[in-house]
Design a protein around this nucleic acid. Structure first.
Lengths: 187, 187, 187, 187
DNA sequence: GATGAATGAGAATTCATTCAT
DNA sequence: AATGAATGAATTCTCATTCAT
């Protein structure tokens, strides 16, 4: 339970590795060699494998980090506004965050990283939060009542994909949001 | 310039290789070894590399095949109905077709397959056709006039992603389509 | 069933690899790197792994080769003489053959190479043959009747170990044989 | 020359490390990682390497400990009985002790631990003692007079190997001893 | 043209050993 | 003295690609 707190330098290395891994997995896919990640982080491979006993473990840790971050932001946004606004702003937030990362996510799934405890825990947490958001927005009449959580999550991923493919055109991105968010409203 | 026509057996081999490659890249990602593709196709690796000098070339060929198929279907649908209906049915068609293939597409992109002539040609063709469809639907007042081709393509990819993530629930899939297609209509 | 006959060059490579592996595993233990074995055999590592998909598989193949050889020699000796003489000459033969190889055998056992079909088959065959030899010599009154096959095999291994440790002194080696062979006779 | 006496805790650590190393090298071979030995002994790797500057040094220390123990027991037995009985009981003792340890001994040899001072010293001591035992038994007419120390040592090792291979069957083990001990007697 | 054996540059992972804390 | 984090050479195995048959 009580993981001994890492020595300062070890913690720094771990953080650096995680940062580098997040960056490269995200932008170049999970094919990037562990060796390169270590080198970029300024440590030896041995250090990488001391912190993450497997490449898969590293992938998972990256995933967990991303989810934690998202969860925190969702929590913050959800608390700050009425149900409808909370729902829509979270939708935007999550989409924006996932941009540039779908290749990574897909690869993770394809690699069959079978969601271990840590990962599942985070996933559940976000899932619960989003479930609450969706229900709130539906009660407020802002979202089609027939939509379930799975469709919501799928739309989240899909919109992220769309925005990602669009590249750097903010006006076009806005039009994508308009389409999806309008589509989410009761008709 | 004029490629000498392949001997009958060579053509058969090429076709078989393409079929197998399409299947495995689509279902298991681009990580599948060339050797396995060759074996499944019932030929030696040498033959594979004779027809496709590079794994990347094989990927591209698979891509071209899929695009040709899609283009043909789009052409058929586009001819068979009024502009609005043509647009919407093509949208569905392309989405359904891309299901289960995004991992492949992403991988292709990530691999930096820099769109050669053959590929570009097909892409352009579909692009033109879709451009026409979109314009038609917009003229008919069935689709928001402010949407451009890029957004349309992005929504296509995104909806595919959403449907893919949803898995096998046809009712939920239908709800995804409802959201996106309603969102596409003028508001 | 019908393993396609290897191409001449492939067969040559396989044989060379096996010879080199037998040599180095025997003299230097199983720790010798696959890479070195390949290099010594004059082929690339890839070739080694094509013929023996695993280092363990290579170990096993070496083992099988050695057993086959022994079995053939035992068969020959066993046919050539009366039961007592057959027994004693086979004992000597097997001991002499195992010299310098116990480190290898032990390592194999320690590595938990869990005796696959091919290996087991050979082991059984030799075992059966030796069982017959032992029974014959016992019926002829040349060997203590209370000894079972396991003790016989253990003495074989032990005498091999003794001879091995002794090094190159033929007279001393002969004295070891005298002790053990005299000890085997009824008292 | 005079090694400064270790602090009490350091001595404890050293002893614990040696005990653990003896145990694991004996039962699992010399492949066990130093890290694991240290952890099992309840110390850090650094401590292990402070006491034994090399893994090989640790192997040697283990060896020395085992030899000291054997030497003490041999001395005790040798003093307690007539020459013949002393000889035979020491033979049994040394064989029983070496059971389960041959893999370790072989590995040591294979690793080329070139017998340093400490090790050689112990070896010599035992060697001398056994030489005395053997001569005594030969003078008493209990052992073949033509046997030299090398053959005796080789038979010791070989019988150990035989007994080891036999496993847990005490009656069979006894039969092995009968064969070898009878063989040792003048004929 | 077809075959599949050979190649060898990686890739992930381990482990003895060093060194900052 | 003790600790355990860091190191990086070494190891096994994979796979795109070439080339002798």
């Amino acid at each position: 339970m009580a993981e001994r707190p890492l020595r300062a330098d070890a913690a720094r290395n771990r953080a650096k590795l995680l940062a580098v891994a997040t960056e490269v997995f995200t932008t170049r896919g999970i094919g990037v060699p562990t060796e390169e990640i270590a080198r970029t982080a300024g440590v030896g491979v041995g250090t990488l494998f001391r912190h993450f006993p497997t490449k898969e473990a590293l992938l998972e840790a990256v995933m967990v980090g991303r989810l934690d971050e998202s969860a925190a932001q969702v929590a913050q946004l959800a608390a700050a506004a009425g149900p409808a606004e909370a729902f829509f702003s979270c939708f935007r937030l999550l989409v924006e965050q996932s941009v540039g990362k779908s290749e990574f996510t897909e690869a993770l799934a394809a690699a069959g990283v079978d969601v271990h405890a840590a990962l599942r825990e985070r996933t559940e947490e976000i899932r619960d939060r989003l479930s609450g958001l969706l229900a709130g927005a539906q009660r407020a009449g802002a979202v089609r009542p027939e939509l379930g959580l799975p469709e919501f999550l799928a739309l989240l991923a899909g919109t992220g994909r769309a925005v990602e493919q669009l590249g750097e055109d903010p006006a076009a991105r806005e039009r994508i949001f308009t389409v999806v968010l309008d589509g989410l409203r009761p008709h």
